[in-house]
Design a protein around this nucleic acid. Structure first.
Lengths: 208, 208
DNA sequence: TAGATTGTTAATCGATTAACAATC
DNA sequence: TAGATTGTTAATCGATTAACAATC
């Protein structure tokens, strides 16, 4: 199935919107309701659904609970996702303490750092020495890691954790990691996000 | 000039790659060098440059220092960007302490929070009461804000700071803000980034 | 039934890539 | 000059949107 990243991001947005609609007491939606809620066209919604074989009822729309079941299944949310954080600096620590992941079935179970001063084995989410990461990943079968180490360390660390069994890395280091065979890498580059925002603000200012 | 977000993100990547090449001692680049460094095609590089009227020398490639000047000017990096952070929770505090923005000419000059316990006026980057944000934005002429407040507060706060003069918001709250007239909103949704990564890891696993 | 909505195909749109003339 | 690279146009590709038959 050939699907692009944007399409999958939209599935996440549909899911989130459906939970909100459900909380408001709705039981079913039409494609145009959902489109409005997410900010896309109704055609886009139906097209996305048809790609994944999700069908509704002609005239009757889609039943929210069934739709959520299917979206959650596609998005792998039918099982708890265990995630580790590599790098317990400012960003890494903040992500470890961030509660927003829990309600999405994503659980950060440990952090790792090379600095002995950052180690804390007794914490709810322990911070362990980086050289224990490899064993931990293998023992616990961890597939997903958040990488929040300094730029200079990012490439080497990503290759190490990948070799230990990590299949997906969410990279916060502001550089492009080389492709790693058997490992998906998504980048969150905060500098570039801000730079981009500044550009479009400047453009808007000039237009006036 | 009609430009898409991806194109501007590539300009940032070109810029970053050019600094690295410069640090390695290079004085000029050809489009295919830069393409390799960033992971795009040489056609893409030349096309992007031509959109912004950046020209090189037939046969001679592009002179790195001139190229950086032009890219920095397009990206608004010829002046220091003052940014505030709204919400001094885990994410907000981490962003305030994060040093990565400085080398990009982006300076976080204050944080704001509604919780009196978080206020700290004597810090290098002070954390001030949220109700001082409006006056601060006006007095300092701040255009860019990073929004790291709880979901429930995000819509209201974004409208307030926009009314006070904010023209661009980098939103970390995991929900879609309604469009605000005269304000550009970029979203960083960490839950969705992770969900997306998990999806593609699962797909890759199934293919094997 | 008449009206409304889905599911899918075809049309459109926009972005990327390929090709190549210009030219250094 | 011959060879290499730019700058731009045309071709391709892929994603989004529009249209509409099927049907509830």
């Amino acid at each position: 199935m050939i699907t692009n990243k944007n399409c999958i991001i939209r599935l996440s947005r549909y899911k989130n919107a459906l939970y909100r609609l459900q909380a408001l007491g709705f039981v079913k939606v039409f494609s145009d309701n959902l489109a409005d809620a997410v900010g896309v066209t109704a055609s886009q919604v139906r097209k996305d659904f048809s790609i994944f074989g999700i069908s509704g009822n002609k005239k009757g729309g889609y039943q929210i609970d069934l739709l959520l079941e299917k979206l959650n299944s596609i998005l792998g949310k039918d099982q708890l996702q265990k995630v580790i954080v590599i790098g317990a600096g400012h960003i890494g620590s903040a992500l470890m303490r961030y509660r927003g992941f829990e309600k999405e079935g994503i659980k950060i179970i440990a952090g790792f750092d090379i600095d002995p001063a950052k180690i804390n084995r007794s914490n709810v989410i322990p911070v362990l020495p980086l050289d224990e990461a490899k064993g931990f990943i293998k023992a616990q079968g961890i597939k997903i890691a958040i990488l929040a180490v300094p730029d200079i360390a990012a490439q080497e660390v990503s290759e190490e954790i990948s070799a230990a069994g990590i299949k997906g890395i969410l990279n916060f280091a502001p550089l492009r990691l080389k492709d790693i065979e058997g490992c998906v890498i998504n980048n969150v580059n905060l500098e570039i996000e801000l730079e981009n925002l500044i550009y479009f603000v400047n453009v808007a200012q000039k237009l006036k």
